[in-house]
Design a binder for these strands. Sequence first.
DNA 1: CTCCAACCTGGAGCGCGCTCCAGGTCAAGC
DNA 2: GCTTGACCTGGAGCGCGCTCCAGGTTGGAG
Lengths: 139, 139
Amino acid sequence: MSGYAPSEAARRSGFSLDTLRYYEKIGLLADVERTAGGQRVFTDDDLGWLELFRCLRDTGMPIAQMRRYAQLAREGEHTVDERRELLEQHAARVEEQMLLLSRQYEHLREKIRFYERLPGPVPETGQPTATRPDPAVSR
Amino acid sequence: MSGYAPSEAARRSGFSLDTLRYYEKIGLLADVERTAGGQRVFTDDDLGWLELFRCLRDTGMPIAQMRRYAQLAREGEHTVDERRELLEQHAARVEEQMLLLSRQYEHLREKIRFYERLPGPVPETGQPTATRPDPAVSR
DNA sequence: CTCCAACCTGGAGCGCGCTCCAGGTCAAGC
DNA sequence: GCTTGACCTGGAGCGCGCTCCAGGTTGGAG
């Protein structure tokens, strides 16, 4: 139920072996267990952390902040407020990010719609088209 | 109505002067006009391109692809199909990106909700909590 | 016991997208 | 005409997040 070889941990977490080692080196993962011979053994708890890191990474949190979070968590219960705060601020940034992304996605779609309205290799007509063909469309 | 000094173009586009020069250097912006003395003069058309680049950049398109797009556009009307294709494929990637982002945002929210349910500095109870406190939550 | 694939370490290198710098030129205001 | 701040160029440097490498060790299968 617990105790995964590095390759297995990589497979399950979706991070590369190198990344797992890197995360440990910079102090994201701390106290990863070892065999007598020094090979890493990842626990379910480690995998839980990795899942969290993936979430934070996918949402664009810089590593320095993840480190801070992990550090706080290791310091104990008295840091829960700060941890929640950190996550909430991050969530707020993610919301902005999603908003921007969907706005820009709409622009992109608009631009594509323009291309679809082109019937074929007909010279672009209408619109105060500039000398260079392309933009002027999305405005 | 047309003809902006570099600083003005930077202000309007939101890109830094260095970035504008960089974009020209690598061939994103081509044929930027110059004064007799060699200083750049940006047109409305240039600003249109910059707006497009911002859209593509904000949605995560790598510069190499933007370059390709700009190149195609410069080649003329016979590349419209390829350009549309390029944008459509990009839009598809953006959709995936938005999906991933909102999924991970939900995880984040879930995690925050966990913190909010903590009444105070009470030891975490319930759940098969691991030795290390923090993750195990978001699973 | 032997083999070999998986693992270890410290440190160098990389790809991206800028950003900064030195040393020189331009041009608008006085 | 002079000053001064905006601009020019080529090229080096940077911050991030890995990724790769050399050279050595471990440990399970046969």
